[in-house]
Amino acid sequence: MAEEKTGNPEQYTSQGILKTVFSRLKRNENLYLAFTNPKVVFGISLFSAVLLFALLGPYFTEYGINEFAGIGSPASRAAPSGEHPFGLTMQGYDVFTRTVHGLRATILVGFVGGLIASFIGLIIGLIAGYRGGMVDEFLMGLTNVFLTFPQLPILIVVAAYLPYRGIIHMAVLVGLVIWPWTARAVRSQTMSLKNEEHVALSRISANSTPRILIEDIAANMFSYIFMVFILQYMGTIMATVGLEFLGLGPTRGVSLGLVMQHAVQSGALYLGYWWWGILPGLFLMLMIFSLYFLNTGMDEVFNPELREL
């Protein structure tokens, strides 16, 4: 576009920059719509805020996760203060420090687990949907079997048998269990895409199957895959936090679920430590909450019928 080349002074003002960004985005209609959908904007802003909080938070605390930051016993209950913005636990740990470190770990778990689950689900869904026939029957049969299994019990059993659990172990474990849902969703998308003209064309040009799957099918469901990933990210986090509450969390390191479990175990709410009982969970909730908004908004963007025009 012409205005990009001319040295329009407006482009250096913040408004001008935004304008340029939007004009660029306009070329990609979907992205433009995404960034103007209020739900998406709200979701992304809130999620970014939580993410930033997790990333920067550790730089604003002088304490370690398990470092004694003051006296926290009920007699001298330390409510949030300037020095300890989120107060102290009964044992004298700084809740802010634990929350930000825990949040970091939990976000990492979500990404790793979400990626694994999305990846497995994507591969199985693509192959099943594209190949059809016996392959489809077999893969979907398998998927359905796993889908009906209650996940948490499987995770409990497996987690209990791991002699040693790190944060990444947990993520991989959960990711390996929660993929079936993705496979099913991707398969049905693939089925509807594979009969489209450009796929047929690609097939006639004797392109290899993996290439068709990646370039012609997966690439065209990118937005869909992204939404699936978000769901799996949330799923991983919820499953891990549940496990952590049951005492099957990482035996090493910290995570938000462990921080919450510790609060529950110590009867934080009963004993009046609302900051300890509520705040860590609140951040987890806000993060998931923002992603629900993001997903609903994206749903509206990518399914034109839903656009509130």
Binding site: P74, A75, G267, L271
Partner: peptide, 19 residues
């Protein structure tokens, strides 16, 4: 215990001093 349902608790109860 806080709901007065138990007469003798031999658990390690967090917050015993404050209760």
């Amino acid at each position: 215990v806080l709901q007065e349902q138990i007469d003798l608790s031999n658990n390690f109860l967090p917050g015993t001093p404050s209760i």
